[in-house]
């Protein structure tokens, strides 16, 4: 790719980010439109705080007893670890699932629409034993809960 092309793409992206920021600030856009583009920076971040900054705009998280992270105590197969995050908080905007010891800690982010409840369940890969953290965004604040999962066979390497 030539430098000229790169510059154009860079301009396009920065312009797009700028206008979305303005629209979000004025409340013109619904949350799902703001997050329409896949968040490359967040999903490639190797550090948890960096991923949270890129994804949610903050890494200031407080632990909450209203969130339950359901996961097995011991995962025999790290390639398939069932995870459920159930938050009994009103106005859940998004739920992020993080496997803290994975090469890429941020596994998934679920953006909930207006009618959706704070419940999400999926299956993730885990490289090694570590905490699975559920981060719930509600009312502009971040709450978290975690559970340790022991992995006997990792699911990320090969």
């Amino acid at each position: 790719m030539s430098n000229e092309m790169k510059r154009r793409i860079f301009l396009k992206r920065s312009l797009a980010a700028g206008s979305v920021g303005v629209a979000a600030a004025t409340g013109l856009l619904a949350p799902q439109q703001v997050l329409a583009a896949w968040n490359k920076a967040a999903f490639e971040a190797k550090e948890l705080s960096g991923a949270l900054d890129a994804l949610l705009g903050s890494s200031d998280v407080s632990e909450s007893a209203d969130i339950k992270v359901k996961a097995p105590d011991i995962a025999e197969n790290g390639a398939v670890v069932p995870i459920t995050v159930d938050a009994s908080i009103d106005g859940v905007e998004s739920i992020a699932i993080i496997a803290s010891n994975n090469p890429v800690p941020l596994v998934a982010n679920f953006v909930m629409g207006p009618g959706a409840t704070g419940f999400v369940s999926t299956r993730i890969k885990m490289g090694k034993t570590g905490d699975v953290v559920g981060i719930v965004k509600a009312g502009g604040k971040l709450y978290s809960a975690k559970k340790e999962v022991k992995v006997t066979i990792g699911g990320c390497g090969g």
Partner: peptide
């Protein structure tokens, strides 16, 4: 009603529930 963004850390043949 729900939009998810994933990394490669989600298992093969993904399952979701909400």
């Amino acid at each position: 009603v729900m939009m998810a963004e994933w990394s490669g850390g989600v298992s093969k043949n993904p399952y979701i529930s909400f």
